[in-house]
Design a binder for these strands. Structure first.
Lengths: 229, 229
DNA sequence: ACATGGACGATACTGAGTTTCAGGACGGCG
DNA sequence: CGCCGTCCTGAAACTCAGTATCGTCCATGT
């Protein structure tokens, strides 16, 4: 609950102090003192010193989970894209905070690690849902792992680009581009699942009497393309 | 340097105690006492309590870096596969330790986080090299990120499967399978780079007089498939 | 007016990690 | 042999994050 007046003051005091003296050089007592509260109160608002920097990740994670849970295998792609957009939106909404945190995380290894861990939670979430959607199809676990990793990587790539640009450009265009990249990748993967051990994709060669009607040709080709080979 | 006799004793004492009482319930003093040395000596051998569990990750990282650095863009695929195999080999070599650590990490959140962070280091390494290899081709950064994430995800997937199986089966077959999966994916991505914004891949339709010679047909199709569309 | 519950502060404690210092073992060297 | 530098170790004190406990104050409702 980072939206009580007290925890708000604590967060401001913390970011200010981290900015002035650095993260490691700032103790929890310092933060509490500047916020005008006691040490106890700090730990009531935030479970740890790092939590001041990463406030409501749990809530965001729940939001993403809710979006994914509201979907089925049929609408998986849309759900995943929506979910990723939810996350990016949250970052863009408080651009100030995101940018300040980005600069800080770039300097403090402990915070960098912490961020990596929270990113991994999203990846795990995606993996679970994608895994469920894929059911017991061949290599379901592997494909779920790869898709989750790719989606998260795409998001991170776009987010980092936006942060490095100091939040000047609109990141949703690049995000859609990156997601399209991922989707295309896996669509091709799905299509060529049965031939993935071969060096190259199969080529359909169809021959017809030159007198065959277009419908005949189309039906034959359609059948060939849909056949499990 | 986890290979001095003292740090060896410390590692054994630590794993034994973690097994008996649990990680959080074991203090550094306990470990040092059982190893028959002082607390100071412990921190001389290992930088932190967690380091006893993850000993020589830095060395392994260097080994992987060396393998990647010994390659160029031309042999990128081989280099990446080799590098991943190096990592998996290291795990398989001391299967005992890997399995014990796996069980422990599954129970202790702090260690799980630590492992995630070290995995991220490998991913970063792959990303840097793949990014260099891709140079300034379009979307190089994005593609590097995706490839690195995929390769690492594939490795993790295989490794976890092997660990869950208590190291009974040979994991290198599954690893090759998973890597082939990834390679196929990105090969298709490369091939369809120019059409990735389209909804589907292009289809080549070629018509010939039924009297055309096979060579004529082949040449025409070959030209069409090789054309930049 | 009184009870209840929640927010806050004070205090003490555990344990990780750092720093400092003091001895002891060891090998060279005069 | 004695002296000296170096490295390894132990001892002790210190900082600080995080936890637990208890007392206080205040607001609210009956």
């Amino acid at each position: 609950m980072p939206r009580s007046p007290v925890s708000q003051r604590l967060a401001e005091a913390a970011t200010a102090l981290f900015d002035e003296r650095g993260y490691d050089e700032t103790t929890v007592d310092d933060i509490a003192a500047r916020a005008g509260v006691s040490r106890s109160t700090f730990f009531r608002c935030y479970r740890s010193k790092e939590d001041v920097i990463f406030p409501d990740h749990d809530a965001l994670l729940d939001q993403v989970r809710a979006r994914l849970a509201a979907s089925t295998a049929d609408t998986a792609i849309v759900a995943v894209c929506d979910a990723v957009r939810i996350v990016l939106t949250r970052y863009v909404e408080d651009a100030e905070v995101s940018l300040q945190r980005y600069r800080l995380v770039g300097k403090v290894p402990a915070l960098r690690d912490r961020e990596i861990v929270s990113v991994a939670r999203y990846q795990r979430l995606f993996r679970e849902f994608v895994g469920d959607w894929l059911g017991d199809s061949p290599d379901a676990a592997l494909r779920a792992e790869l898709m989750a990793a790719s989606v998260v990587a795409a998001h991170n790539q776009v987010l980092r680009g936006w942060l490095r640009d100091n939040g000047r450009h609109d990141p949703f265009g690049p995000l859609d581009h990156a997601l399209q990249y991922v989707i295309t990748t896996f669509r091709h993967l799905e299509k060529s699942r049965d031939e993935r051990d071969h060096d190259t994709g199969q080529i359909v060669v169809a021959t017809f009497r030159s007198s065959a009607s277009p419908d005949t040709v189309m039906d034959a080709i359609r059948a060939q393309l849909h056949a499990p080979s």
